Computed example of a mutant assay.
Amino acid sequence: MRTLLYTLAIGSVVGLAYWAYQENFETQQALKRLSAVQAQIGDTREALAVQRAEWAYLNRPDRLADLVKLNFEDLELLPLTPGHFGLVEQVAYPRPPSLEGALIDTIEVSEQNVGRRP
């Protein structure tokens, strides 16, 4: 009986050791994948920052004004000036809907009934 108990105990220790080894291996693999994904995120953010800088460089107002002048014959674009913008007071806002006709059932109140309790 002791031999069976020792055998089961040793078997369970070996089984748990194998399970712990597998979990440790899977954890190490997950950490490696996480590190790779974080590096990829960093690279993507860096590339995005470079693209934003390039976009800002290409959209400089003086560069765009020069392109408008160079391609005026083909595109007939005019440079944007402050005179192209209007004032807020010049904006025609829609009128709010009127309340006329919105009240369908009205109640007449006379002075006779005011202040009297039924």
Rank of each mutant, 00 (worst) to 15 (best):
A49L: 08
E111Y: 04
R45E: 15
G83I: 04
G11I: 07
T7E: 14
E73G: 01
R95S: 13
L4M: 13
L103W: 09
Q29L: 08
V88I: 15
P97Q: 12
R95L: 12
L31V: 05
A53M: 09
E46F: 07
V14F: 13
E76I: 04
R63G: 02
A49F: 04
K69V: 12
D43L: 10
D62V: 04
F72D: 06
L48I: 02
I104R: 03
P61V: 09
L78E: 13
P94A: 06
E26V: 02
T27R: 08
L77W: 14
V91T: 09
V88F: 13
R45K: 15
E108M: 05
F85C: 01
V91A: 11
Y21N: 04
V50L: 08
A102H: 11
L8R: 12
P79D: 11
L103C: 07
T27A: 07
P79T: 12
N71L: 12
G15L: 15
V88E: 13
I104L: 06
L103S: 08
K69L: 13
L48R: 01
Y6M: 06
L8K: 14
N113Q: 15
F25G: 01
A53Y: 05
G101M: 00
A17T: 15
L34K: 09
T27F: 06
R33G: 00
T81D: 07
Y57N: 07
S12G: 09
L80Y: 12
Q90E: 14
W55L: 06
A65W: 02
R60N: 12
E73C: 02
A39T: 12
P61F: 10
I107S: 04
D66C: 01
W55P: 00
Q40G: 03
G83L: 10
L5Y: 15
A56G: 01
F25E: 14
A53D: 12
A53G: 05
L78Y: 10
S98L: 05
I107F: 04
N113K: 05
L16M: 08
Y18E: 01
V50G: 00
L99E: 03
E46I: 04
L16H: 00
V37R: 06
L48S: 05
V91H: 08
R95G: 02
A36D: 12
E26Y: 02
V37K: 06
A53W: 03
N24R: 15
E26D: 10
W19N: 01
R60T: 10
I41K: 13
S35M: 08
T81H: 08
L78S: 12
R63S: 11
